[in-house]
Amino acid sequence: HDQLISGIDWSARSNKIVTASHDRNSYVWNLEGSEWVPTLVILRLNRAALCVQWSPKENKFAVGSGAKTVCICYYEQENNWWVSKLIRKRHDSSVTSVSWHPDNNLLATTSTDGKCRVFSTFIKGVDAKNDNKKDSKKSTSSDLKFGELIVQLDLSSSWTFGVKWSPSGNTLAYVGHNSMIYFVDDVGPSPLAQNVVFRDLPLRDVLFVSEKRVIGVGFDCNPMVFAADERGVWGFVRYLAERKTVSSGSRYGSQCKKTEEVVA
């Protein structure tokens, strides 16, 4: 790379590193002996690459960019190189983060257009088709076309960042630059969304540490802990550096609603 490296991810099983940069390139790094050797990935971008993440099966990775485009990259065995398929004309601004669903096919994105979206990334010849006859009546992510938009969430009035799936893939969380964090269940035509409002500086990223607990980090320099109670209602619990639980008061609030009105 010859410009700022904006994203990096490591594949634990195959021991590969992928990087993305403002130079519009991405490299896959393989350990050969004692040295990491880079292989250029064909992204076909005209703007900076901003984020990158391996898929759970490590046979694909996604690159978000300032070109309003997401590149889904995979290894082409015949030509011995990494190529990409592009999800175009779906975002109205830069793609700030990407996150893979545990099924290896659905991909969530956030953008500076204020929206969170979920796409199908099924690639014939790379991903296995679901041939389970018992589930034949149910639509699965492998039945969807590449680049198909599953849902578009218009919950935030500002830039959105840091999208993540829960370990089961049942809950989606992301943050807005308006000091709010969003939790979405039943991702699909009629998702159930909640938001937690706080007066601290905005968060930039989140991490599920369990199915019902999330850590958020951002501009306040102090990680925040959020959790869902027995009813499934999310709320702020405490700062990570504090031992005492902070009671919900005027500084924090949560809302829960069906999102028919905010799903495009």
Rank of each mutant, 00 (worst) to 15 (best):
Q3L: 09
V118N: 02
G147V: 01
G7F: 09
F183I: 10
D200G: 11
L153V: 01
W10F: 15
N15G: 00
S248T: 13
H177F: 15
I17R: 09
N80W: 01
I72N: 06
I150D: 00
V70E: 05
I181A: 04
H1I: 03
W29F: 07
N222F: 07
R117I: 00
V98I: 14
D135T: 14
V52R: 06
G66F: 08
A264M: 10
K89D: 15
W100G: 03
V18P: 02
I17E: 05
L192C: 03
V214P: 02
D92Q: 14
W54E: 05
S11W: 04
A264Q: 11
V209Y: 11
L50F: 11
R231K: 15
N46W: 02
Q194T: 06
Q53V: 00
H177Y: 15
K89R: 15
Y182C: 05
S120E: 03
E58A: 07
G33C: 07
N178D: 15
F198C: 02
F122R: 06
L203W: 06
C51M: 05
Q77F: 05
D200P: 00
K60P: 00
L40I: 06
M180N: 13
A173V: 15
T110I: 04
L149R: 04
D220N: 13
V246R: 13
K89Q: 13
K258R: 12
Q3R: 14
W81V: 07
L192R: 14
S250Q: 12
L31P: 00
S14K: 14
F208T: 05
F119T: 02
N104V: 02
S65F: 04
V225A: 04
R231S: 15
L50H: 03
L172V: 08
K57V: 02
V209S: 10
R13N: 12
